[in-house]
Amino acid sequence: MEFYRSAVGKKWVMGVTGIALLGFVLAHMIGNLKVYLGEGQLDSYAHFLRELLYPLLPKTVTLWLMRTGLVIAFLLHIHAAASLTLLNRRANTAYRGPRDLAVASYASRTMRWSGVIVAVFLLWHLADLTWGVTPMAPEGWTAGAVEANLAASLSRGGVAVLYIVANLLLGIHIYHGAWSLFQSLGLAHPSYNRWRRWFAQAFSAVIVIGNVSIPIAVWTGWVG
């Protein structure tokens, strides 16, 4: 707890929860790609998630354990980010003249905005495809009919654009995050520093391409 009170400790927690969230985003994207394997594949994958580790554990228990871990990771990530932002506001005094940033990337400068927008999108996305709450969810939303719900949701033009924009912002967010977390966790060394940049570029590219392909596939009629 004393460790988390420090700013360096909070950044460490952001790095660790960032890894957990990157892992989730990657697994989620791979799961999404089941939509390309043919009719019923996505639905049976969703069904499989509910029966993960069954009969060792009762049905949906593993899923709920993972969900609990994710919610904790999200809350810690957001709490640390919010309190560090407040600390930085207090520590900073604005320049009155022009300010010419030398190297700070668009991604690093917009982490707060991309993070907040992706978090709001996430709630929208859950209401749309997990909870089936109108007006986010499409008409005729049915629990368990994952592929049909997905196709119905993304065939709404505005929704498809929302998913594409949100995933681009997610890509920008993790482009800085996947590089920055090594720094926060103290993992920097001349022997592998260049790999960190490549890792961040490749990771964010894979996530964005994988996820954005789906609304495009629905729009072109390839899926759904």
């Binding site: 700013a7 360096v8 909070k10 950044k11 560090l84 600390l87 930085n88 207090r90 520590a91 900073n92 940033l101 030398a102 190297v103 700070a104 990337s105 690093s108 400068r109 982490m111 800085h176 590089w179 920055s180 090594f182 720094q183 926060s184 966790l185 103290g186 993992l187 920097a188 060394h189 001349p190 520093n193």
Partner: peptide, 25 residues
């Protein structure tokens, strides 16, 4: 304040000190 890994400090440093030292710290 707290570090968000922009890297501006390294670029501004007249002695070109690397942010690798921040990771070490």
């Amino acid at each position: 304040g707290s570090c968000t890994n922009h890297g501006e400090c390294e670029a501004a440093c007249p002695k070109q000190i690397s942010i690798d030292f921040i990771a070490m710290m």
